[in-house]
Amino acid sequence: MLRPVTDTDGAPFWRYAAEGELRVQACAECGEPRFPPRPCCPHCRSFACEWRLTSGRGRVWSYVVPHPPLLPEYAEQAPYNVVVVELEDAPRVRLVGNLVRRAGAPLGSFDPREVRIGAQVRVVFADGLPQWVPA
């Protein structure tokens, strides 16, 4: 399995995910949530930030179904879905992940033909990675 590459700004996201929490970076001055994490608020230009716990609920905003050829680590699991989830309590934040039947299920566990834009989902965690399941 491929693992995420972390940088200084994004490392807290992955640390919280490893603890089973979905948190997003937010500006400590104006309060605007932002993703991906970055050092400066694009709204007020402040460098002050905090990590807010989210409800972990959202909706499928978009999706794609990759087909081979892919990276070798994923080719055997294709076809599978890759969803973009808009968070319920931070609607400007959209996260990329996979819709699965249950935490830790293989990528192909949710039939790509059943994915629907607007479907309600909630986050689950498997091995420190956020995944999405139907709400």
Rank of each mutant, 00 (worst) to 15 (best):
T6K: 13
D7S: 14
D9N: 10
A11R: 15
F13A: 06
Y16P: 00
A18G: 14
A18N: 06
A18S: 15
E19F: 02
G20E: 02
G20K: 04
G20C: 05
V24A: 05
V24L: 12
V24I: 15
V24F: 06
A26V: 07
C27P: 05
C27N: 08
A28E: 11
E29C: 05
E29A: 15
C30V: 07
G31E: 12
G31W: 11
E32V: 11
P33G: 09
P33N: 10
P36T: 03
P36V: 04
P36K: 01
P39I: 00
P39S: 14
C40S: 06
C41D: 02
C41P: 05
P42K: 07
C44K: 04
C44R: 02
R45S: 13
A48Q: 12
C49P: 00
E50K: 14
R52E: 11
L53S: 13
T54E: 13
T54P: 14
S55M: 04
R57P: 00
G58C: 09
R59T: 15
V60T: 03
W61T: 01
V65Y: 02
H67V: 14
P68W: 09
P69M: 11
P69K: 11
P69I: 11
L70R: 04
L70V: 04
P72I: 01
Y74S: 05
Q77A: 15
Y80P: 01
V83C: 10
V83R: 04
V84I: 14
V85Y: 06
E86L: 07
L87S: 01
L87K: 06
P91D: 04
V93L: 02
R94P: 00
R94S: 03
V96T: 15
V96I: 15
V96Q: 12
L99M: 09
L99F: 04
R102F: 08
A103G: 13
A103P: 04
A105R: 09
P106G: 08
L107K: 04
G108V: 00
S109R: 09
R113T: 13
E114P: 00
R116C: 02
G118T: 07
V121K: 01
V121Q: 05
F125N: 01
G128S: 06
G128V: 01
G128N: 04
P130T: 08
P130D: 08
Q131N: 02
Q131C: 03
W132A: 03
W132I: 06
A135D: 15
